[in-house]
């Protein structure tokens, strides 16, 4: 299982809102494909699938805030 983590976005940024998921649970993913977008401070950051597999879980839904370094979901 691979964790999807909200990456470091720069000094002073501790959280971001997940603006959208480009996949739903059960979808097949290829490593590197667009997975979701995290928005902070009027910047939208594309988060890519960290591994090939199926999206197993989403921990932070669209519109919710996630913490930098925190879990957004998992791929199996």
């Amino acid at each position: 299982m691979t964790k999807i983590i909200l990456p470091e976005l720069g000094e002073g940024i501790t959280k971001a809102t997940i603006a959208c998921w480009h996949a739903k649970i059960g979808d097949s993913l290829k490593k590197g494909q667009d997975l979701c977008e995290a928005v902070t401070d009027k910047a939208s950051f594309v988060i890519e699938a960290p591994a090939t597999g199926k999206l197993k879980s989403i921990s932070v839904d669209q519109g919710q805030e996630g913490l930098v370094g925190g879990l957004l979901g998992t791929i199996e």
């Binding site: 720069g10 940024i13 902070t40 009027k42």
Partner: peptide, 9 residues
């Protein structure tokens, strides 16, 4: 440029 979104903005 240091991978810092806040600084960039």
């Amino acid at each position: 440029y240091g991978k810092n979104l806040k600084l960039y903005m």
